[in-house]
């Protein structure tokens, strides 16, 4: 068991009535790449800002290597590198000068700053553009310079906010490779907050799904998929020949199947249990040829939308509940 690098306990942030982060509990191990996934406005950025001590939590506590993020922000910021969403640089300074400045803010010595800046510019492939003003940089270049900037202080933990946004496919591959490298070779802990599931899926060891300030699921992608299955929600994706109405009826009549629908040339069968075996036997017995059969649930997109649906349903139920409670009071006021 590796030691925990980031520990978040009961972290809450409320802006007036609105609760941005609601009693968040999370531990991230050393050397792990953790993806914090959620739609816009789920409270991901607020969480990362609280980890850096830039925003004070309403209640709860976050620690990074046993340092309290609210009480010791300076110590925390010394070992945490933060790459903000849409990172900005001083436009009338060159890329290299921007890195030097970050080095000076971290109290590094001049020779050390120059050595690291050269090395990092090389690593992110920005050596050629290093002496151009950052005002002329494209978004992808800024992002790469941003990573070099984060690495200037040689951080143990890196927090990235939407790092994959607005980068071209080649840049994306480079970025993802770099992230893996930072975790595997350098042993850094990386927390990525994003709403781009596909990219995150490729690099993360574990993901947490974050909706409306709550962490509704957390684990490896496989774990999340299995948990979904245990929750009694199965979707079978199949294609068979001859593809006709009788096939649909046959599948719909199966024991355990809750619904059957058509999606392009595939048929989706939702059920409360694993019906793969039964379906195969049934189709074979009725003279159908199975062309394709797949249990859905393996990729993040699906897991995410499933969890998201669940959370939304829960939210809707809670909302109606609240509505019911509120209604008499309104009438009471009128009367």
């Amino acid at each position: 068991m590796k030691e925990n690098m980031i520990e978040i306990r009961g972290l809450t942030k409320a802006y007036g009535e609105k609760i941005a982060v609601d009693h968040l509990n999370l531990s991230i191990r050393k050397g792990e790449v953790f993806g914090l996934l959620g739609p816009n406005g789920a409270g991901k950025t607020t969480t990362t800002l609280m980890l850096l001590g830039l925003t004070d939590p309403t209640s709860g506590q976050a620690t990074i290597r046993e340092k309290d993020c609210t009480r010791d922000p300076i110590d925390v910021k010394r070992m945490v590198g933060y790459l903000p969403d849409n990172v900005g640089f001083y436009t009338d300074m060159t890329g290299r000068e921007n890195l030097y400045f970050t080095g000076r803010l971290n109290g590094l010595e001049k020779e050390e700053i120059e050595r690291r800046a050269d090395e990092l510019l090389e690593r992110v492939g920005m050596t050629e553009a290093a002496d151009k003003k950052t005002g002329t940089y494209s978004r992808g270049m800024k992002q790469r310079l941003g990573i070099a900037d984060v690495l200037m202080k040689d951080p143990e933990v890196i927090i990235m906010d939407e790092p994959t946004l607005g980068i071209d496919p080649q840049g994306m591959r480079d970025l993802l490779r770099l992230i893996r490298e930072l975790a595997e070779q350098d042993g850094r802990t990386i927390l990525i907050s994003s709403h781009q599931l596909y990219q995150i899926q490729q690099v993360c060891d574990r993901v947490g799904i974050f909706v409306e300030g709550k962490l509704i699921a957390c684990g490896t992608i496989r774990e999340l998929g299995q948990r979904m299955e245990r929750a009694g929600k199965y979707t079978l994706e199949l294609a068979a020949e001859p593809d006709n109405e009788a096939l649909m009826q046959l599948l719909g009549g199966m024991e355990g199947a809750t619904s059957v629908e058509r999606e392009n040339d595939l048929i989706l069968v939702r059920s409360g249990s694993d019906i793969r075996k039964k379906a195969t036997l049934l189709l074979a017995a009725n003279g159908y040829t199975v062309l394709q059969l797949r249990q859905k649930g393996g990729d993040l997109d699906e897991i995410y939308s499933r969890y998201f649906e669940q959370a939304e349903e829960g939210e809707r139920a809670a909302a109606t509940e609240r509505e019911k409670k509120r209604a008499p009071r309104i009438f009471g006021k009128r009367a």
């Binding site: 850096l52 110590d75 933060y82 903000p84 900005g88 436009t91 109290g107």
Partner: peptide, 14 residues
């Protein structure tokens, strides 16, 4: 507006 404040504030300075 240049979005540099976050980057600076994330450095170990008061």
């Amino acid at each position: 507006s240049d979005r540099t404040l976050y980057r600076i504030a994330a450095q170990p300075i008061y």
